[in-house]
Amino acid sequence: MLWEGIKSLYAYLAVIPVIPFLLIYYGYSFFSDDRKKAFRLAMDITTGLLIGCVAVLFNHLFNGSFGLYGIMLVMLIGGGLLGNAQFRKRGKVDAAKVIRAVWRLSFFMMSVLYVVLMAVAVGKSIFFQA
């Protein structure tokens, strides 16, 4: 029962990720005056919603089940590339910085993919009804 409620809440929030982003941003910035930290917190939380939504959209549009695995693969490759660049420049790898950078870059990548895949899915459902 509790698990079904959590899944339903996640599904509702992930469908339109702009709403939880704005709720978190304005809610946190209301209690603290640090808008930069509020933006980063909203971005970090919304990334998890966007990853799930983009994976489902990808699976739906291409009739597959590789969406989440493909996203994780791209994130791991990005982390490897960033870690390698950091090692070459500084001689050591700060894993926390690499993970944070990959997570925040994923927000922007997932945002673009969300808009594109949602537009394609809506267009497909309107123009190519089976």
Rank of each mutant, 00 (worst) to 15 (best):
M1G: 10
E4D: 15
G5Q: 00
G5C: 05
I6V: 15
I6N: 05
K7N: 14
L9T: 15
A11C: 03
Y12H: 07
V15P: 00
I16D: 08
I16N: 13
I16V: 15
P17S: 07
P17G: 12
P17E: 02
I19L: 10
P20N: 09
P20H: 04
P20E: 04
L22G: 11
L22D: 01
Y25Q: 03
Y26K: 06
Y28F: 05
F30S: 11
F30K: 06
F31P: 00
S32R: 11
S32A: 08
R35K: 12
K36D: 07
K37F: 10
A38M: 05
R40L: 11
R40I: 10
L41G: 01
M43Q: 11
M43D: 07
D44N: 11
D44Y: 06
D44T: 08
T46M: 03
G48C: 01
I51N: 00
C53L: 13
V54A: 01
V56C: 10
N59M: 00
H60Y: 10
H60G: 13
L61S: 12
F62Y: 09
F62H: 05
N63Q: 12
G64R: 03
G64K: 01
G64T: 15
F66S: 14
L68S: 13
L68T: 13
Y69H: 07
Y69S: 08
G70D: 00
M72A: 15
M72W: 08
L73C: 10
V74F: 04
L76S: 14
G78E: 01
G78V: 02
G79M: 02
G80W: 03
G80P: 07
L82D: 04
A85N: 09
Q86F: 13
Q86V: 08
Q86W: 06
F87V: 02
F87K: 05
R88N: 15
K89S: 12
R90W: 05
R90Q: 12
K92Y: 10
V93N: 02
D94L: 08
A95Q: 03
A95R: 14
A96W: 02
A96I: 12
V98R: 03
I99T: 03
A101V: 04
A101L: 06
W103A: 07
L105R: 04
L105N: 12
L105Q: 04
F108C: 06
F108Y: 09
M109R: 01
M109P: 00
M109W: 10
M110L: 14
S111H: 06
Y114I: 02
V116K: 07
L117W: 01
V120D: 08
A121S: 14
A121N: 09
A121W: 08
A121G: 00
V122G: 04
V122A: 11
F127T: 05
F128S: 15
F128Q: 13
A130F: 11
A130P: 15
